[in-house]
Design a protein around this nucleic acid. Structure first.
Lengths: 216, 216
DNA sequence: AAGCTTCTTGACTGAATGGTCAAACTTGAT
DNA sequence: ATCAAGTTTGACCATTCAGTCAAGAAGCTT
């Protein structure tokens, strides 16, 4: 019944690894940057293509020349984000010194909150929505990594090298404390006065906190 | 030019303190409950009246019989939320025992995360959007309260009754840690397995943490 | 400069959205 | 039972939204 349709030249945004021209690389990046801004503040459903187009300084049809759909832009952002999201924890070394390692992990996460607040908000927005687009990532990749690192933390606690605390809650506490400085930055600014950087004093405080928490 | 328009009977949703029938009280509550569910997961712009109407089991025009607009529903939710949001901190007593007071504050906040996760997510969503609808609340009410309590904490620290830590970051840490269990509950569930309550073990962990952090 | 490809956009479409309205249905006081 | 007030909704409207398309503009290669 269905007539065999002739092969159609793929749009550059499409799946296949099409070689990308300078213009494509540049404009895709501009679009992703604009989309990150909009998605991270309004969530997926609250963001509009017109808004992203305006932010990017491109026309809406032009966005859809580079990406197949609103969904595709969002998906690309998430993919790129999740690819690097695990890195700070992955680096945590079971062979290293417990306090140094955990402290360094905390510092890496805090640094990410300072350097990539929009990515942090994008992630937060997804979780608030129930994480429908990240479920498999969290259930598989993230969970496996956390389980592994939690075993190391537990081993350190058992060996008396750090205090006897629940390793999962230790990890959650680092996520909570560091991401708070990115996700709740407006609140912090309004309370502390617009003068400060929201993270002013955070590193000192968190070092103090984890030094005391971890001491065996 | 404009003809003087006759006084119009106000809709029940309108501003003035109209006396409310049983049906009104009941349906307004049903609507607010449904709206809280929807707004807290999708944010203001991502939520639709149809979705709220479906959740409430009412027709869309019926929603707008009880509230003037989508905005009015959201505003009412925020007003109710902010009215009670400060209470746990307000109770903190400068005359009491420092450790007991701070610990009790942390426990009250954690309890609120368990009891009112949707309210917590609504708040988080607003902050992620830059807090446009809560700016004056944060800049005035919240800031004044935090400043006041921070002075008490500072006095305690100066008197050597708790450790010398930045009082603002101490408060932020309590917000971050307790709200994380509400706002990031899906992530926690997916990592720990659906069996647990996300807040399992949280109280013990946080008590341990603040005991060690606060000790002079 | 010619000719081909890549890029850009104005004008459009169908569906969704916030909101209106008049007519119909309930409720409660008499 | 009656009637006015309170409540509910189907049909509708203007706007916004994601996405399409054909035609034109800009790059690239020769």
């Amino acid at each position: 019944m269905t007539a065999p349709r002739p092969p159609i030249a793929e749009k550059p945004g499409s799946a296949r690894k099409a070689p990308r021209s300078r213009i494509q690389t540049r404009n895709r990046q501009i679009i992703l940057d604009a989309a990150l801004e909009v998605f991270s503040t309004h969530g997926f459903r609250g963001a509009t293509l017109d808004q992203i187009a305006a932010q990017a300084g491109l026309s809406k049809p032009n966005l859809l020349y580079y990406f197949d759909s609103k969904d595709a832009i969002h998906q690309e952002l998430l993919t790129r984000l999740l690819h690097t999201w695990l890195d700070p924890l992955r680096i945590l070394d079971a062979q290293g010194d417990p306090q140094t390692e955990i402290m360094a992990y905390m510092r890496r996460k805090l640094q990410m909150s300072q350097d990539f607040p929009r990515e942090s908000r994008l992630f937060a927005n997804e979780i608030l929505q129930g994480a429908p687009r990240m479920e498999s990532f969290i259930r598989n990749d993230l969970r496996a990594l956390v389980d592994e690192k939690a075993r190391h933390l537990q081993a350190w606690a058992d060996a008396g090298r750090i205090a006897r605390i629940d390793p999962y809650h230790l990890i959650f506490s680092i996520w909570a404390l560091t991401q708070h400085y990115a996700d709740f930055a407006p609140q912090i600014s309004m309370i502390r006065g617009e003068g400060h950087d929201p993270t002013d004093g955070a590193e000192v405080f968190l070092e103090h906190l984890y030094t005391r928490l971890l001491a065996p």
